[in-house]
């Protein structure tokens, strides 16, 4: 990450003219990365799997970081990479893993008229924005004077003078957010935890699978978690693969099995009712 960051900085520095016009290097950078950013964000919008969306968003953010660097904002560019792409997106991925996958990933629209209205609204809004931007009288002052002492120093001078109050409030906001996250994510245990004996009794009382679930299949070609084991009668044992894989549709067909796993929700598993 740091390597790519530094190259981008170099690239951007090379393309940045000192004056009002943008240089050729920056134009090349823009026309190279802008389509990537747009495509990545569109991909995020249309990809079926949330993980893909997250990764595509990270890509978009990286492109934006490059643009920041190209526009004499090295500090923001670095922060974008470190905080956004590094921390925030990782947080997203963690939660994705925690929450798992479910029917909400489906792209089938359930609210009547929502899709058309949303697309029309987004297109119309975008058109309005573009139309209005086209009307703006552009000046290009450049940041040469503002960044004379260095971008970080310039920002620091502003943050700790004119914006110091907002900055302090931000610190309070961050503390509050941290506390809030703890309170929200915390779950109070309202009953005593089951001990081993009770867990065991519960397991046998359920009567479905007292023993451990069967492991996935081990085959000549596949020795993997994504292939169900075969039962003695030649049927694939659906419970032998992880349900996350089933939900994602990443389960391979067991060799020789003519029965395809139907749907994750139809497989009865012990412990689902907990």
């Amino acid at each position: 990450m740091t390597i790519s960051g530094s190259t981008l900085v170099a690239l951007a520095a090379a393309g940045t003219p000192t004056g009002t016009a943008t240089g050729t290097g920056e134009a090349v950078l823009f026309w190279l990365l802008a389509p990537i950013a747009v495509l990545a964000s569109l991909g995020m919008l249309f990809s079926k799997k949330a993980v893909h969306s997250a990764l595509l968003l990270a890509l978009t953010m990286l492109c934006l970081a490059a643009f920041y660097l190209a526009q004499d904002a090295p500090f923001l560019g670095v922060v974008q990479v470190v905080v956004y792409t590094g921390a925030v997106m990782m947080l997203f991925l963690f939660v994705l893993m925690l929450v798992g996958v479910d029917s909400s990933d489906s792209l089938v629209e359930t609210l009547r008229g929502q899709r058309i209205a949303a697309i029309v609204a987004a297109l119309g809004f975008g058109a309005l924005l573009v139309f209005s931007i086209g009307d703006v009288v552009v000046s290009n002052a450049g940041l040469a004077t503002a960044n004379a002492d260095g971008n970080v120093q310039g920002l620091a001078a502003l943050i700790f003078s004119r914006y110091v109050f907002a900055f302090e409030v931000t610190s309070a906001l961050l503390i509050t957010a941290a506390l809030g996250a703890m309170v929200l994510a915390h779950r109070e245990r309202i009953e005593r935890p089951l001990n081993q004996r009770q867990l065991s009794e519960q397991r046998f009382r359920g009567g479905v699978h007292p023993a451990p679930l069967p492991g996935p299949g081990v085959y000549a070609r596949h020795n993997a978690v994504d292939t169900p084991a075969l039962l003695p009668d030649g049927q694939p044992a659906d419970v032998s693969v992880s349900r996350v894989l089933l939900a994602r549709g990443d389960v391979r067909k067991a060799p020789g099995a003519d029965v395809v796993v139907r749907d994750a929700s139809e497989i009865e598993r012990p412990g689902d009712d907990q």
Binding site: Q71, D72, A73, F75, L76, V79, Q80, V83, Y84, A87, V88, V138, S139, N140, A141, G142, L143, T145, A146, N147, N151, G154, L155, L158, I159, Y163, A166, F167, T170, L173, L174, T176, A177
Partner: peptide, 22 residues
């Protein structure tokens, strides 16, 4: 910020990032 030639826009963007993180 770049067009205007001052750093206020970058400061705002910085604050937006902080708020977004929270």
């Amino acid at each position: 910020a770049r067009m205007q030639g001052n750093l206020d826009g970058q400061v705002i963007a910085f604050f937006v990032m902080v708020v977004a993180a929270a």
